[in-house]
Computed example of a mutant assay.
Amino acid sequence: MAIPHTTPGQLIDVRPFGLRLQSEKTTALFKSEQLEVIRLVLQAGKSLPPHSVAGEITIQCIEGRINVTVSSQSHLLEAGEMLFLARSASHGVVAIEDSSALVTIVLSK
Rank of each mutant, 00 (worst) to 15 (best):
F84M: 09
R87F: 04
K46L: 04
P16Y: 10
V106A: 14
I59G: 07
K46R: 14
S100W: 03
E33F: 03
S74V: 14
E24K: 15
R20M: 14
E63A: 00
I38Q: 05
E24W: 10
S99Q: 01
Q22L: 15
V103T: 09
T6I: 06
L29V: 07
I59N: 09
E63H: 00
A54G: 13
V41K: 09
S90I: 12
L40P: 08
V94G: 05
S52K: 13
S71I: 05
H91Y: 06
S32I: 15
D13E: 11
S88N: 14
G92Y: 12
L11C: 12
P4W: 08
A2Q: 06
G55Q: 05
F17T: 12
H91Q: 01
Q43L: 14
G92D: 10
R39K: 09
L19N: 12
Q73P: 02
V41F: 08
K31G: 15
S99P: 07
F30W: 01
S72P: 00
Q22E: 14
R65G: 03
S90C: 07
A86V: 01
L83H: 11
H75E: 05
L19A: 13
R20G: 11
H5V: 08
K25G: 12
S47D: 10
E24Y: 11
L19V: 14
V68R: 00
V37F: 02
L11M: 13
P4L: 09
L29D: 04
E56Q: 08
A44Q: 01
K25D: 15
H5A: 01
V68L: 02
K25R: 15
K46V: 11
M1R: 10
A89F: 02
A86T: 07
H51L: 00
G18V: 05
S99Y: 04
G92F: 03
S88M: 05
V106F: 04
S99E: 06
G9E: 05
F84R: 09
F84Q: 13
L48A: 00
A79P: 02
T69I: 10
A28V: 12
L102N: 05
L19Y: 15
F17K: 10
C61E: 12
I57P: 00
E24H: 15
I57V: 13
L40F: 03
V93Y: 00
E78Y: 09
I105C: 06
K109R: 11
E97V: 06
L77C: 05
Q34E: 10
I105D: 05
H5Y: 04
R65H: 11
G64P: 02
